[in-house]
């Protein structure tokens, strides 16, 4: 009896939260759209925003797993660059072409990214060294290697097999027939990865253990959870996600550059995760939240560009929004725990 009422309340609270978030988003979007004289809600612009956020969103997906275990991965930006350079070199030297070349290159990149993630995790799980340190070290090492491998210059791709991926689109005939803008390949990648990561985090034992480790690592260990293996795997996922972003950038620019994603990308990936409601102290978070976090950041940038906001001011606004999102989340939590 009480059980049913409580469950109903929980369900209602959940839907109220979603409804609240959606309502806020609609108000924001309509306000932006009005201010931008209707340019914002154009299909072409919406697709542009989705394409722009897809790189950050994919990085943030991997970062979400790491942060839920109460870790952090500072190396993702550098790994994008290093994996991009390695993949460009591989594709130029491999005796392959067409689809096999693309798949082999992707596999090499993901393997390198995953390996880097494994190296990140090794001192964390074996010696209990804080991930802040190991991934900071990896950030420097990977960036340095990217410059060494490429001699500091972008490596142009010899093959044109990647062009379709970088700037191509999906469902082209369908979207054309409907007079809609084509869906860029990165958006498809993002969507597929969101689905995979959601299932992984919410439906598998691995995902449950990720939450358990973030919530109470010792209790998880004593419950028989292979803590080291699970923690290692979250850094491997994060490294692999970085490699996929490196792959998409490489395809888009037809080159692997040591300077890709070594600017704000790391911080924006963390911002997307945190704005999306994942707790930096671990144990709490969601993939969908991370997507909305990335989306919010992307929408803000896009809107400020449409409105002609000065680029320095954009940074100030973004910083304030991140702070407000986290404060708002904390206040909401307090309200809910009182009610």
């Amino acid at each position: 009896m009480i059980d049913a009422v409580e469950k109903k309340n929980a369900t209602r609270n959940y839907w109220l939260r979603i409804a609240g978030a959606v309502a806020a988003l609609i108000v924001l979007v309509v306000a932006i759209n009005t201010a931008a004289h209707g340019n914002f809600l154009q299909p072409a612009n919406i697709v542009r925003v989705l394409q722009q956020i897809s790189y950050n969103a994919i990085l943030a997906l991997g970062q979400t797993f790491v942060i839920i275990t109460a870790g952090i991965d500072l190396s993702v930006g550098s790994l994008v660059a290093m994996c991009g350079v390695v993949m460009a070199l591989f594709s130029n030297y491999a005796h392959l072409s067409g689809i096999p070349l693309v798949l082999a290159t992707l596999a090499v990149g993901v393997a390198v990214g995953a390996l880097a993630g494994w190296v990140n995790a090794l001192p964390v799980v074996k010696l209990n060294i804080p991930p802040f340190i190991t991934t900071l070290a990896m950030m420097e090492v990977a960036l340095g290697l990217a410059f060494i491998f490429s001699h500091g210059r972008p490596i142009a791709l010899n093959s044109d097999a990647f062009a379709g991926i970088g700037i191509g689109s999906f469902f082209g005939p369908v979207t054309d027939a409907l007079h809609l803008p084509a869906i860029p390949i990165p958006v498809v990648w993002m969507t597929v990865l969101i689905v995979i990561c959601s299932i992984l985090l919410n439906k598998t034992r691995f995902g449950r253990y990720v939450f358990a480790i973030g919530g109470n690592e010792e209790a998880a260990r004593l419950a028989g959870v292979a803590v080291a293996r699970v923690k290692t795997f979250v850094y491997v996922i994060s490294g692999a996600c970085a490699a996929i972003v490196g792959f998409l950038y490489m395809a888009r620019y037809s080159s692997g550059s040591p300077q890709t994603s070594t600017g704000d990308e790391l911080l924006e990936s963390i911002a997307a995760v945190v704005v999306g409601g994942t707790s930096l102290v671990g144990g709490r978070g969601s993939i969908v939240g991370t997507f909305f976090g990335a989306l919010l950041i992307g929408v803000l940038y896009n809107a400020m560009n449409l409105l002609g906001v000065d680029s320095y001011l954009q940074k100030v606004v973004l910083g304030i929004v991140i702070a407000l999102a986290v404060v708002g989340d904390e206040l909401r939590k307090r309200y809910l725990s009182r009610a």
Binding site: A212, G215, N216, A219, V225, G283, R284
Partner: peptide, 17 residues
């Protein structure tokens, strides 16, 4: 400290091991 993940539900704790 060792028996429970406090931020998880009764269900998640009961099935964890």
């Amino acid at each position: 400290a060792q028996g429970l993940v406090l931020g998880m539900s009764v269900r998640e704790n009961v099935t964890l091991a």
